[in-house]
């Protein structure tokens, strides 16, 4: 009888551990999805900025058609890419490159560089890049935690049983780092 109790207790403990581990996998996977939504939202914010940026540069450098077309094509491709994370990262690379080209073109036009509208957009783009990088790091951090559990013993057994697979990291370069960083040393208020 005592043996039966011990076996039942052991089975009970194992079942509770499995349930807790499973639930943790589910919440980690949901956290990854939510953090990906943040990344996606920042990417969309960047897509939305691009037409304004292009139109401002066009106002000063209308003949630089090639770069405008490159940006438009890359943006369309990036917007259309809604597949897995690695595919989306691949689609972002040409856009980043085209945006860098656009900002390089802007460098050649002093009037454009001095334009308040352009400076505002450039600042907004830089801010969006920062937000995107923060969202990306948070997403990758969640993926790292989740993948560690998927690959570590004994949680890997459960991951295999219930189909929890390792997720992919999202790596995307920064398109713009043109706006000067705000010096926060002089911004302290009253604690």
């Amino acid at each position: 009888m005592t043996v039966l109790y011990i076996v039942l207790l052991a089975v009970g403990v194992i079942l509770i551990a499995v349930a807790l581990s499973y639930n943790r996998f589910v919440s980690q996977r949901n956290l990854i999805r939510n953090s990906w939504a943040d990344v996606d939202s920042e990417l969309r914010r960047r897509y939305d900025l691009i037409p304004n940026l292009v139109s401002t540069v066009k106002g000063y450098a209308a003949h630089e058609k090639e770069i405008f077309e490159r940006v438009a094509e890359a943006r369309s491709a990036a917007v259309a890419a809604t597949g897995p994370v690695d595919q989306q990262a691949t689609a972002e690379a040409p856009l980043v490159s085209a945006l860098r080209g656009l900002l390089a073109v802007a460098e050649r036009y002093p009037d454009l560089k001095a334009s308040q509208n352009f400076l505002g957009l450039q600042h907004e783009l830089s801010n969006t890049e920062d937000r995107l990088q923060a969202a990306r790091r948070f997403y990758n951090g969640n993926v790292r935690d989740y993948n560690r559990r998927v690959q570590s013993f004994p949680s890997n057994i459960l991951a295999g049983m219930f189909g929890f697979h390792a997720e992919k990291f999202f790596e995307v370069e920064e398109a713009a780092r043109a706006a000067p960083a705000v010096d926060m040393t002089g911004q302290g208020g009253t604690p």
Partner: peptide, 15 residues
């Protein structure tokens, strides 16, 4: 303290 403050990323104020 000053250096820590100077290293606080500007994105924190935005987020």
């Amino acid at each position: 303290l000053r250096r820590f403050h100077a290293h606080v990323p500007t994105v924190l104020a935005s987020l």
